[in-house]
């Protein structure tokens, strides 16, 4: 018994760091990160807002316009629901059109929330439209 204890004390005096439990700690950490990490694939809509020169009035007249007044949506000056807007945009078959015919003018009032704005952006983008933001004249 005494001999065995002396042998153990001698072993500890060699100055080696016991690394046997390192891999156990490492695997515990891996399990922690596996549980804690969420591999998120965020959901989004893609909107390519083109930048360029101002359009002439004649060009604006030909382009479909979506107005957002507060939470109300208007398509070519007629009040529509988001479902109606989707139907009307789908009927335009924008994805099949050349790039210059895919433009949808989007005008909004200052009290429009991002939620309502997002709905309209999503409707235009998912139907293959290119959003052109209408700015107020200063």
């Amino acid at each position: 018994m005494l001999k065995h204890r002396r042998k153990q004390e001698k072993k500890h005096r060699t100055g080696e760091i016991p690394v046997g439990s390192f891999s156990d700690i490492a695997f515990l950490l891996i399990i922690y990160f596996l549980v804690a990490t969420t591999l998120i694939k965020v959901k989004s809509i893609t909107a390519d807002l083109p930048t360029g020169e101002k359009q002439t009035q004649a060009q604006i007249d030909k382009t479909p316009v979506v107005n957002l007044r507060g939470a109300d949506i208007y398509f070519s000056d007629k009040k529509v629901t988001i479902e109606n807007l989707n139907e009307r945009l789908a009927a335009l078959n924008l994805a099949e059109q050349p790039a210059n015919k895919r433009v949808i003018m989007f005008e909004s009032t200052s009290n429009a929330s991002y939620q309502a704005y997002f709905h309209v952006l999503a409707a235009i983008s998912s139907n293959g439209g290119v959003v052109a933001l209408v700015e107020e004249e200063k």
């Binding site: 909004s108 200052s110 929330s113 991002y114």
Partner: peptide, 18 residues
């Protein structure tokens, strides 16, 4: 962007990205 924010907060940022 926060869903409740008004246009004057988020639209300049959208335009800046574009």
């Amino acid at each position: 962007c926060d869903a409740a924010l008004p246009k004057e907060t988020f639209e300049p940022v959208l335009k800046a990205i574009a």
